[in-house]
Design a protein around this nucleic acid. Structure first.
Lengths: 203, 203, 203, 203
DNA sequence: TATGAATGAGCATTCATTCAT
DNA sequence: TATGAATGAATGCTCATTCAT
């Protein structure tokens, strides 16, 4: 007769997980609350015990998505201290992990971008803040580049823009991969990116 | 005896223009027919004299958007025969024209991507076919690269993946620019991309 | 430079004729003004030069339909003075003429009934007045029956109800014929009606 | 833990009941979803929890209407084995029950006819199939007639057409009654029909 | 805590009617 | 007189959210 004990955070994570699966399948906009509920194996109303609104789910999913990427990046960087190797690892590992979860899942990124760009809601902006997220990405890359420059491995390039270009190429390749999975072999194309681009900035 | 004479094609273009403005402001999904009508200064019902449905407007806008890009690209390529110069021009001019129409407008591309990726409707697929559009973009770049290789200007790189990387970088930079217009100076960042990347593939 | 001279009444009749054709094909409710205009080979707006509204067209068509029936009936009755023969002729000729115009056309009667029954609009009620129309039909039959009774041909039946039953059978047979043209041979079934029913009321 | 328990079938029946009332009042075509909802004392959206579409409501109402008639007919026939009596009972009881529900309600039949005749939608045709319904009615009457003929009570009439005529008279009388409730006393007119018509086919 | 029945705001679309030409 | 481009009221339907159980 004791009340069912539920780990709130755990269940939230479960719902987010379910939501991500449906987002990947149907896209953000076409996903209905009932879809998420069914995927999570719970009742429609139950979702509202854990999330205020559909937007809240979206924002939380957004957070999970990018925080996981950040965590992955950080762990990658700890593996080596060679700037060239770090950049290589960063690209290959990031693309590998995306390839692993699948292009459907990667397509969520499109939705996150599209939504994240417009969102002006102050309550949500603190969570869905692509500007800040990309600032962080760039900062990570810049640190590597500056490290490489000071070590004499890289030319004295503009680290802000170089980091932007690297991230840009990464995002753009995912986009093309989503559209044409057969054609774009992420591994090979990453090698092309790395070999050519690093060649350009290496001393 | 004679009713009001209207240039149907002109009016369609006007409505598409209005739609694009609203798409840019509100995003594709949140745009309502009444928004487009008000922006165009016409009645809600009038839109249906020129377009079958909301989806039809979207598909037509999509077509306008990418066909304009294609036209712009073609005219750029006619200006010079030097492969290096062609690639430079392609990047700078494309980014310039996007910069010119504004980031709100460029944000439509996000919506087009997000929608285009998921759309499986056969009727629409013939119009909204990002896969094909990107194939064309890559083919254009490949031709330049192959030309450059045969002329001995470029190393014998994998032209498919190199073209993919170049386009990727372009798309990704726009994305970052949309999110942070102050930080990302498209001109400067393009120079960085060109100088570093071309350096990597030049012989 | 003289203005085009148009016979207003003639053109009204043309439009009504076109309307009837479309009513027969699509049904009253699903018929749009544009359908009538196209069938009549004129512009949508032109209809409003001759009719105030869609309802006006309907009411006029209604009038045409039933006044034609009445005219047909009257001419039939003039052919003979024998009450038995008059009833026979009335049934056979009425059914024949309906058979001739076709079941699609006869189906309009269903629409007229459905609409006529509900219509409470006073402006229209003077035109679409099924109650009065059926009173007239019954009066015609009653006159024949009374004539037959006074001539000693018919039993002294209740002429009101007998006329109602005869008209009812007529209407009901059309209904079944509309639904199942192959099965119901109007000629044969009329013979059955006449022979059995007249047998019942003949002295 | 346990949500509100609703008898889905019961609620469907309630909504159909409400729909029938509105259909009777306003007519099928002019009935709006909001009308049905208000009559049923529920919200607009609730209807869609029980019916897919307006057409679905209509089809279900249609089904209820005619299946009730069929049930009534079957129970009537079980009361006696005398063919003459069966025909008499069939007419009087059917008319009585219609008289009981009221002419507004009977007017729905007009709408059903009008709609049923045109409907060509295959999905709906299996439900709204007046041709089949009338075939069943005729078969019922034919069985009685054939029974009567073999028992030597009726002349060897054409049973198909005779049954068609009987049903026709029934339908037609309802039509006149709907239009003129004061004038047409269903009981008396049925007696006239029975006495005259049966007289005609009795041996 | 969990649920799903109930709800109504919101939206795409239709079509009778108007009116400038 | 004839037209069809323009219009917006009207309506079926969806779906996020609420709340009684």
């Amino acid at each position: 007769m004791s009340p069912k004990i539920v780990n709130k955070e755990e269940k939230k994570a479960e719902i987010i997980h379910a939501a991500m699966i449906v987002f990947a399948k149907r896209g953000l906009v076409k996903t209905k609350m009932i879809d998420i509920a069914e995927q999570a194996g719970i009742g429609k109303g139950t979702i509202y015990e854990y999330f205020r609104s559909k937007e809240d789910i979206f924002a939380t999913a957004f957070q999970y998505f990018f925080s996981e990427m950040t965590t992955a990046i950080e762990s990658i960087l700890a593996d080596t201290e060679d700037p060239v190797e770090q950049l290589k690892l960063l690209m290959t590992e990031s693309l590998n992990s995306l390839q692993h979860v699948g292009s459907d899942f990667a397509a969520i990124m499109m939705d996150f971008w599209a939504e994240g760009i417009r969102n002006k809601d102050q309550r949500i902006l603190s969570i869905i803040n692509l500007k800040k997220i990309y600032e962080n990405y760039r900062r990570t890359i810049r640190t590597i580049l500056e490290d490489g420059i000071s070590k004499g491995v890289f030319k004295p390039v503009n680290t802000l823009y170089t980091s932007a270009v690297l991230i840009a190429a990464f995002d753009g390749l995912i986009l093309q991969w989503i559209m044409d999975r057969e054609l774009i072999d992420l591994e090979k194309v990453t090698n092309v990116l790395i070999s050519n681009f690093l060649e350009g900035i290496k001393k």
